[in-house]
Design a protein around this nucleic acid. Structure first.
Lengths: 390, 390
DNA sequence: GCCGGTTTGAAGCCCCGCGCAACAAATCCC
DNA sequence: GGGATTTGTTGCGCGGGGCTTCAAACCGGC
């Protein structure tokens, strides 16, 4: 079987299964790996040895398990295998190093007093990578860069088609960063990457069909997980629920004539209702919780419209869970079961009877984790090939 | 490798790839199979021989190809391998036999003067199968039954949760039919199966991300294909776009207060506008084409609302193609590029710039083909195992 | 503290499944 | 009719995972 397509296919698959398991579930004994994969323990030993040779995992002394039988060595993702995650935003550029063991050894938020250009973003990222390499990440093996971009990112080549708040249009950010750093780079929509992070490690862990909706200062974005995998669509532009024309039951609930969802359900309207000009998410949540009647009515109005948007999405996609982040989490948290009931009223009963609605759980790390996951994706798909190349 | 999960995994996979190829693409020479799969020709010979032994394919004398070189035998799906497809509707029950070669040797439409019960459906299907077995299908090998049900069907066990027009609720139709016929039976939503058929053999052939919307007398149903596979969601209830609260740009376009999409975009309203009481689809299409101004305005209104619904779905799912069937095809066909332009105006440009909108192409065979495909699914997934069992 | 029971690692062997090379067969073209 | 070309056929090799056997490391009980 010298043809990679067939023979190494099996090997590659099994290596990938193991690496993904230790990456996602954390340290696992070899015995548990045999259980999870169904492979023979001799095979597991061989596969793990190969991953160790490639510097992707480490074997540690067995945990004192206090169980009968010979203890099994613990396999753990090598923390030195590192991805760089970056998230350009209107007011800041956040860069972090994320280990294959899911640790985040360094994180830096670069505040900005001007709008970032794609070139400047690439330069800043490359500078940080360079300086970290000389210091904190001296013994790290950096396998790639993942970018979480607030805008439409073409899946095929990472071209940022349109990031309105950054004023980026057809910006080849992925290639710019790849050139500046010399590292393989991937770019994705921030909400899509957030959905991946919540699916792997957050509120949606264990669910195969997820709708994730995030409410940010600049609008509403979303990401979809179907069959346990991110849904990218034909071009990579899924989840743009914020641009949907909302179905609004009561005409009196409408504020923006012929507006889209994010014109009606918006952080700005929420801030105005509670009488704040600017606030971070916890402050807004506190203000909403302490809100007077007029603010409460605005929250209720947004909840009504949101519930219809969710119901529409649920009718179409029949997810097992809906996860809400950002200010959508804030207005949902007022009464999560109540929101669920509103959604249920507007869906066919079967589609929502086992539907869960949850608020997101990963907070500010979400985008960095999602971006790092994207950067790790190639390695996790083909550990042998990717390890050999880097 | 006596463990089926790993070793036969490869074998099973490759057998499935071959069988699926000849099933979907029609007769193929062994030489073309080696090209398509990348497998060695000695392997192909071995795999095909196994499929022949299992009675799933036949090898025929080579086509006179008029090309140099030794002619390659043609591999064709065995037409005797047969699925029974059935589609219960309000006014009729359609039953057909569909060959693995995609032929439809028999089809029967049983007109009904009363509403079908699940038990009666099972009995009628079993009777037909019995009589066909004694006659037209004497030498057929029937591998299963596929049911296309106009309603919500739970994917896990084929329970019909709710088929409003048939007045079925929590009806174990799949099990009833399986018991009555003694055949493995699967049940699915009619629109989902229609989407599968259009994806495999119809207007959406070759596209991996498809939204299919069908307009029937009783409402609007849909099916989704993502990553080239049907999207079933958590329970199996995807594509219920008809139940969505529509986003309506102009308040004057609204007819049903707080109604859902299928209240606004409906075949009944269309019939009324053209002054017909009842009509089949071609008759309706003719009437729409010859419509006067008031009817034209109703068509235009429905097109406006439909375009918003499509835009919303496109924003969320970024498909490469939207396929419209039933009366939605009729109102779309008035001006397909125009409808596309309306959708494009309401979506982010990147998501719809390469979007195709097409009318469905399989007509009345669609549901039977989709249902048969569902019945063949297990065989196509594991040719060895399924063949041995039947 | 030793001994049986239990679980798992380690090493050697086997077998399945596919690739490969060499040869044969069937067609086209000149 | 003979060379070129393509593909079927056959026998062999090899990669990769399973199985078996033995050894190692733990527990518990006496």
């Amino acid at each position: 079987m010298s043809d990679p397509s067939a023979a190494e296919g099996v090997r590659q698959r099994n290596l990938a299964r193991l690496l993904r398991l230790v990456h996602l579930e954390g340290p696992l004994s070899r015995a548990r790996l045999t259980e999870s994969t169904g492979l023979n323990r001799s095979t597991i030993a061989d596969l793990v040895a190969e991953l160790v040779r490639e510097g992707l995992v480490e074997e540690r002394a067995p945990d004192p398990s206090h169980r009968v039988g010979r203890p099994s060595p613990v396999v753990v993702a090598d923390p030195r295998v590192t991805a760089i995650a970056a998230n350009p935003e209107v007011d800041a550029l956040t860069i972090a190093a994320v280990g294959l063991d899911r640790g985040i050894p360094i994180r830096e938020r670069i505040e900005l007093d001007h709008l970032l250009s794609p070139e400047e973003a690439a330069r800043l990222i490359a500078e940080r990578v360079e300086s970290w390499r000389a210091g904190e990440l001296a013994d790290a093996r950096i396998v790639g860069v993942g970018l979480a971009v607030p805008g439409l990112v073409r899946a095929a080549d990472g071209l940022v088609r349109n990031a309105p708040h950054l004023r980026w249009a057809d910006a080849p950010v992925r290639d710019l960063v790849a050139d500046a750093t010399g590292l393989p780079t991937v770019a994705g929509n921030d909400a899509t990457l957030g959905a991946i992070a919540e699916h792997l490690f957050g509120a949606a862990a264990g669910f195969d069909d997820v709708i994730y909706l995030n409410g940010g200062a600049s609008g509403i974005g979303g990401g979809l997980i179907v069959h346990g995998q991110p849904l990218l669509g034909a071009g990579g532009y899924t989840g743009e629920f914020g641009q949907n024309r909302p179905g609004i039951a009561s005409a009196t609930d409408r504020r923006a004539d012929d507006g889209v969802l994010e014109d009606e359900v918006s952080r700005a309207r929420l801030l105005a209702a509670v009488g704040l000009h600017t606030a971070d998410e916890p402050a807004l949540a506190a203000a909403v919780a302490a809100a007077g009647p007029t603010a409460a009515e605005e929250v209720a109005r947004q909840r009504r419209i949101l519930s219809t948007a969710l119901a529409n999405a649920v009718n179409a996609l029949n997810p097992s869970i809906v996860v809400l982040g950002g200010f959508l989490a804030t207005i949902a948290a007022v009464d999560v079961p109540g929101l669920g009931a509103m959604v249920q009223e507007q869906t066919m009963s079967a589609t929502s009877e086992e539907l869960l609605i949850r608020v997101a759980s990963l907070a500010e790390d979400r985008l960095l984790i999602g971006a790092a996951e994207a950067a790790f994706a190639e390695l996790l798909r083909d550990p042998g090939g990717a390890a050999a190349r880097s």
